[in-house]
């Protein structure tokens, strides 16, 4: 390119996903906080189940999370194949991390 010719790089067009995020003003703070809490609880559930199958109250105590909240997260993990029911202890089903 000859000296003195000024060239400007055309700005890269924004992707639709970025445009949509901008249009909505980014990710809402409440949603960010909820996802953070979701990740914390999931990590705690995996840690609690690492030593073997446990019931919902047992996992809830280990995760320091109310049992009804813990149940919701555990069932979400069960729905998507991360956790399985493996038996019962008293009046409660036992859950374990799915192998593989």
């Amino acid at each position: 390119m000859s000296e003195g010719v000024h060239t400007e790089k055309a700005p890269k067009a924004k992707r639709p996903i970025d445009l949509r995020r901008d249009l909505r003003g980014g990710v809402a703070k409440e949603l960010q906080a909820r996802v953070k809490e979701q990740n914390r609880i999931r990590k705690a559930i995996r840690a609690a189940l690492a030593d073997g199958p446990r019931t919902v109250p047992e996992v809830a105590a280990a995760a320091q999370t109310p049992a009804h909240v813990l149940l919701w997260h555990l069932m979400a993990m069960r729905r998507y194949g991360d956790v399985v029911e493996v038996g019962e202890r008293g009046d409660y089903p036992l859950y374990a991390v799915k192998e593989g």
């Binding site: 919902v56 109250p57 149940l71 029911e85 089903p93």
Partner: peptide, 14 residues
Amino acid sequence: GPYGRVLRPSDGKI
């Protein structure tokens, strides 16, 4: 369903 069996929502008890 959400639990795959009948449980109560407070603590997953049968």
